[in-house]
Write a protein that binds this DNA or RNA. Structure first.
Lengths: 100, 100
DNA sequence: TGAATATATGAACAATTATTCATATAATAA
DNA sequence: TTATTATATGAATAATTGTTCATATATTCA
């Protein structure tokens, strides 16, 4: 059994995925890195809201950034993120399937 | 790109993991099924709080139950849950390691 | 039937959080 | 330098949520 503190940190980590805007950003970054304005336009979420959420993603080590000129490019930090999203999607798709 | 609605459902799915009590319950059930009172005692969380959280876990298809007599046994619904917890733990342990 | 045990649940309060709005910072172009 | 563009951020409001307390339901035992 892992320590209570570590599991609380794990809960905090999963909070990152527990918001529609953030999970949409992460899924968008699964295939390709993108800059803030692209994310904002593709998801139809205000630039401010996107920046706020990207900050949380960055603080959680879930995305990394690269600044070139005025634009900041965001990408997934590592493959754990891809895998977690993948298995989450599989689970809910299966759960949906089993309802029929 | 997955649909906005599906990704919102995915966000809701991850909310399940985004609470210290729930993630501790899930980690506890990783190795062995347990009944409500065992969970309550092992985690030192009130029976009421545990039952409330177990209900959410059940509604999200994350655990399944079996009632025998007065006791209700809870277990993880499928291996996706184990895998998601596993990769989550790996991610935060690595992130910790990289700080040093 | 009545008492005891295991689990579930409704209501309410406290705490957390996502967005908007306004504005700040930084980089480029004119 | 001034204007423009890209991104970041502080404050405030609205909405969501986890726990506690009290109580309900269900099962077993005497």
């Amino acid at each position: 059994m892992e320590s209570k503190q570590l599991l609380t940190e794990l809960g905090d980590f999963f909070k990152i995925f527990a918001d529609p805007t953030r999970i949409r950003i992460l899924e968008l970054l699964t295939d390709q890195e993108k800059c803030v304005s692209e994310i904002s336009e593709l998801l139809e979420v205000s630039q401010s809201a996107v920046s706020h959420q990207l900050k949380l993603l960055r603080l959680a080590n879930v995305v990394s950034t690269e600044k070139i000129g005025q634009t900041v490019t965001y990408r997934l930090a590592d493959d754990h993120i891809r895998i977690i999203i993948k298995y989450g999607l599989e689970h809910i798709k299966e759960a949906k399937g089993e309802k029929n």
